[in-house]
Computed example of a mutant assay.
Amino acid sequence: MTPKQLVFMDIDGTLVDEQQHISAFTKQTIRQFSDQARFYVATGRMYASAKIIADEIGAGIIASNGSIFDAGTRQIKTLGAAALKQIVTVLQQHPLNAFFFTDHQVFYTGALPSYFQHSDHNRIASPNPHDYIKVPSLPALLDHSAEIINGIIIAEDQVAELNAINQQFAAMPAAFVVSSSQPNNIELIPQHSGKASAIKAIQTATGIDRHHTFVFGDGDNDVDMFGVADYAVAMGNATPAVQVRAQYVTGTNEQDGIAHFLLAHLPAEKGSINHG
């Protein structure tokens, strides 16, 4: 049976719980609809990390906030030297942790937090210890400008610094896109990228339109997906600002919100969604 729907799911706060697990119920539900719908994870994580989760459910991959994705062939966009130079210039003025990613490597200059360290249980980044590369300085990142796909700046208790960085980025000529998955971070994405852009490319490649597309997310970096799918679903644990941008709100990630929404909206259609 040829799939007639597309389903895109953010990972953290959406598909997995705090322990990085997909529940047995959600896995079972995805398997139940595997002939009817084509499933993808759509995440800010690097490709290698996204693949660990995607492989559990046989899903396709949108990673690095849409900068790398599978649409027949793998598509990759990089930040580029001009964008990386702007980012490095600003970061030299603010002592915050920043991390930059290829499809499987993590470049960093400061301390490596526990949630980025290699671990089969953590899975936020790469499980391979050799994929973590400390560079001697921020300018040294420019030597890797041809490889770096995206980055993230994290400030656990330095919100004022984070806001100052955002303001500086906003005043610059646009060479990259700024997003956020949580209030404590700034995500740095190549121009003409984003989850929505990747989804549109996959819709074109599969011939499945927005009327048969489901997207699930909980963060600010998921909002652009809501504009390319008729079934735009915010998780119950999403902030009110995210929920108001969605067409639907489902249960939380801990309540199997994805599974319950699919069970409520897919079975009756038998491959044809009713828009009435």
Score class of each variant (00 low, 15 high):
Pro173Ser: 09
Ala63Gly: 00
Ile87Tyr: 00
Met46Ala: 01
Phe216Ile: 02
Ile186Ala: 09
His265Arg: 14
Gly251Lys: 11
Phe39Gly: 03
Gly13Met: 07
Gly251Thr: 02
Ile148Ala: 01
Ser126Gln: 05
Gly13Gln: 04
Ser126Glu: 06
Leu84Thr: 06
Ile52Glu: 00
Ala232Lys: 07
Asp218Asn: 14
Ile149Val: 11
Tyr40Asp: 01
Pro190Cys: 09
Leu141His: 07
Asn184Ala: 12
Ala24Asn: 01
Ser137Arg: 10
Ser114Tyr: 14
Gly219Ser: 15
Pro139Cys: 13
Ile68Gln: 11
Phe216Ser: 09
His21Tyr: 03
Ala246Lys: 08
Phe226Ala: 04
Leu112Lys: 05
Ser64Met: 01
Phe39Asn: 07
Leu96Ser: 12
Leu138Asn: 11
Ile154Cys: 07
Thr252Ala: 15
Asp131Tyr: 08
Asp256Cys: 05
His94Trp: 14
Ala264Gln: 13
Phe25Gly: 01
Ala63Cys: 07
Arg210Ala: 15
Gly13Lys: 03
Asn185Cys: 13
Val106Ala: 08
Pro173Ile: 02
Ser180Gln: 03
Glu187Trp: 01
Phe25Ser: 07
Ala171Met: 09
Ala160Phe: 11
Phe39Gln: 05
Asp35Lys: 11
Val41Trp: 06
Gln191Gly: 09
Pro95Gly: 15
Ile154Met: 06
Gly60Ile: 13
Gly227Trp: 08
Ala83Arg: 05
Thr239Trp: 07
Lys51Ser: 05
Ile133Met: 08
Gly207Asn: 12
Ile68Glu: 12
Gln92Gly: 15
Asn274Ile: 06
Lys85Tyr: 07
Ala155Tyr: 02
Ile57Lys: 00
Phe176Ser: 05
Ile68Thr: 12
Gln86Ala: 04
Ala171Asn: 09
Ile153Arg: 06
Ala146Arg: 15
Gly251Leu: 11
Phe101Val: 04
Gly110Ile: 13
Leu188Asp: 00
Tyr40Asn: 02
Ile133Leu: 15
Glu254Tyr: 01
Asn221Phe: 07
Arg45Glu: 02
Asp157Val: 11
Gln203Asn: 13
Gly72Arg: 12
Ser114His: 15
Ser180Asn: 04
Asn150Ser: 13
Glu161Thr: 12
Ile62Lys: 03
Asp120Thr: 10
Asn185His: 10
Met9Phe: 06
Ile57Asp: 04
Asn253Lys: 07
Gln86Ser: 12
Gly251Gln: 10
Gln247Phe: 03
Tyr47Phe: 10
Ala246Pro: 00
Asp35Ala: 10
Ala160Tyr: 12
Glu254Gln: 09
Arg31Glu: 10
Thr109Val: 13
Ala140Cys: 12
Ala268His: 04
Met235Asn: 07
Thr14Ile: 10
Thr73Trp: 10
Ala111Gln: 14
Ala268Gly: 00
Asp143Lys: 14
His104Glu: 12
Ile52Cys: 02
His192Ala: 15
Glu161His: 14
Phe33Tyr: 15
Ile22Leu: 08
Ser137His: 10
Phe214Val: 11
Gln168Met: 06
Gly72Trp: 14
Ile208Pro: 04
Val16Phe: 00
Leu262Met: 03
Ile124Val: 15
Val178Gly: 05
Asp120His: 08
Asp256Thr: 03
